[in-house]
Design a protein around this nucleic acid. Structure first.
Lengths: 343, 343
DNA sequence: GCCCGCGCCTTGAACGTTCTAGCCCGGGGG
DNA sequence: CCCCCGGGCTAGAACGTTCAAGGCGCGGGC
């Protein structure tokens, strides 16, 4: 009675029977390969649509040992990961691959996410900002080609596509310094991937400009830690600009500043990192460092496919140059800073 | 040379050969079924781990026509969807099912997401807050069992798990009225699923309290529209409380309020909806209406599995009762409201 | 002493594809 | 007349698993 039950799904053999040909010929027609007469082509197509035939991915992949599948491990709560996934989908589509998503959730570790992809026989794995120790990633790479996105992993067995975090931070600092800022703080990313690179870059960038007035606030990759860290920056001498680990960190910090009655950017400039869709929200309009997500995604897929096909790639690590997107959260500091002594 | 290449993946036959038994016995041991001697069990396990054997999901599913797979369609950018996916994973795990994720992105419509799940031979589909017209969803239900989450679909062929949005809105309004608010505005969700229900509930809730001073601001399901809509609420007579479609909408609105120099909750109370992880961020600490995500996920999986197993379920639509989570963005209005005239 | 039953194991056939080899048939070159 | 060629098609074997059926000892009831 209920549709979808009772009659099992149509198979190649069903189509073949109805069209009066062999399954092999149906297979050929379905994949648009040469070797079938026009008459049979139309007849088979018609039979297939009448039966509502859909090829069975499992069986297809079982036979032709290519799964045309790329496994992707991402973290659900990370807005930035969502952006990358979007890019990966279209990049994969362009080269005729499918994506198998496996999410990391608070209750589902990266190990588990990877394991399920392995039983799915993915040809390659793309890990977005993984937290797993490098050694384990390297071991994983012995089972399947691995491309790590947005994190540095120094191992000869894994491919890495990432941005030059140091360059991004330098650009941000240059931008602030050019606007006249001298006291520039950094809210870091805690133990998040990339946090140490950016923290170090912040320090060398300031030094390069001869600024010794560093202010490092321990933060994290989300709004909460950002807001908390920002509170510690309100005590005088208050910085005039803050460089956040992340767009989300920046959003949290801005929230604290607004609550404290500070005007961004007049009283405090804020720079984020990632140019996630959060930063582009009109109400934030965050100055940030943009990683070219589309390009990263494209390169990751390209690399994964090459590796799956046994192409020998020359450089295991590809480092992209980010660029600053100047929006409305940065401005020259107040000419007459009321922030000297206050409390 | 490179690991992962050259030697193809270990198969049942490889393990069997190494352990000196038949493939069937290996299969039995791998699935922990009765019918193998302890001695062979340990021998086979050892051989399997030595070879790094992992079962091939494709082949397994091809044979036993149960795929034990539930397809999930979700939207990457929606934080709330992420929460649900998290719940779905553990719920599916409990009943021995796997999840196949298929994302909707700006470049990848729901049609496409669904199509890929169908060729994967999922036993049932879970759609999270789909935008697809009801008629198309109904047609899809003729190909596979469909469970729709967090959206009302009035069709006898699809199962629906959703919250009683009206009840949630009523609770929020009751809470605000109990605190003494009289001018309560609503920022709606535009064309997002659930928006009309909540909008209507807002209106009837106010009426029920004899409040005629309605203020409806057209918004949307994200921060941007929320912030924009909030600006239109700043003109006097300013409301003392705002009920937002969404936590994200609420976050955007709060941002506008802070920028305008208003103190939340002293000058303006804000209530969100969803209790997404965003609301729980310490810097927001948003009073919101909680949908029990874990329970929704559990019920959705339960329903999907039942349906896949041909169990006849009694009610196609399950409506859960939400509850208010009172945090720090609501308070009684200022006794001496300075909001009468200002501009 | 025969046979039944039971625990352990193997054999062979599926599942829905794709791929390799080869068949048939008509035509053209030797 | 024979051979070869090539376009169109088919038969049958894979792919890696699960499942049904059955074999082989061995112990116990008759």
């Amino acid at each position: 009675m209920g549709p979808g039950r009772g009659g099992r799904r149509a198979t190649l053999a069903d189509v073949a029977a109805r069209a009066g040909v062999s399954t092999a010929l149906v297979s050929i027609v379905m994949r648009d390969l040469p070797g079938a007469s026009p008459a049979n082509r139309t007849r088979i197509w018609q039979a297939a649509t009448e039966l509502g035939y859909r090829p069975d991915a499992r069986a297809r992949l079982l036979r032709s040992n290519r799964s045309k599948l790329i496994g992707v491990v991402f973290t659900v709560e990370q807005a930035f990961h969502a952006d990358i996934v979007t890019g990966l989908y279209s990049a994969a589509d362009n080269v005729g691959y499918e994506l198998a998503l496996s999410a990391v959730t608070p209750a589902r570790g990266e190990q588990q996410a990877v394991a399920s992809l392995l039983t799915d026989r993915c040809e390659a794995l793309v890990l977005i900002g993984p937290q797993t120790p490098a050694a384990q990633i390297a071991e994983l790479a012995s089972r399947a080609p691995v491309v790590v996105l947005a994190r540095a992993v120094r191992d000869r067995a894994v491919d890495v596509i990432r941005n030059d975090d140091a360059a991004g931070i330098h650009q941000a600092v240059d931008h602030l310094v050019a606007q006249g800022h001298r006291r520039i703080a950094h809210i870091d990313g805690g133990r998040a991937p990339g946090a140490t690179e950016r923290r170090n870059a912040y320090q060398t960038a300031l030094r390069r400009h001869g600024l010794t007035d560093m202010r490092l606030a321990p933060g994290g990759p989300t709004e909460g830690p950002g807001a908390e860290a920002a509170r510690t920056l309100l005590t005088s001498p208050r910085p005039t600009a803050v460089l956040a680990f992340n767009d989300r960190t920046a959003a949290g910090a801005m929230d604290t500043f607004h609550r404290a009655g500070l005007n961004v950017p007049a009283d405090m400039s804020v720079v984020g990192y990632d140019d996630s869709h959060l930063a582009r929200q009109t109400h934030l309009n965050l100055t940030t460092v943009a990683q070219d997500v589309a390009q990263m995604a494209e390169l990751a897929i390209q690399r994964a496919v090459d590796r799956a096909n046994g192409v020998t790639v020359r450089h295991r690590e590809t480092i992209l140059q980010p660029h600053l997107v100047s929006r409305e959260t940065t401005a020259p500091p107040r000419p007459n800073p009321r922030s000297l002594k206050r409390a």
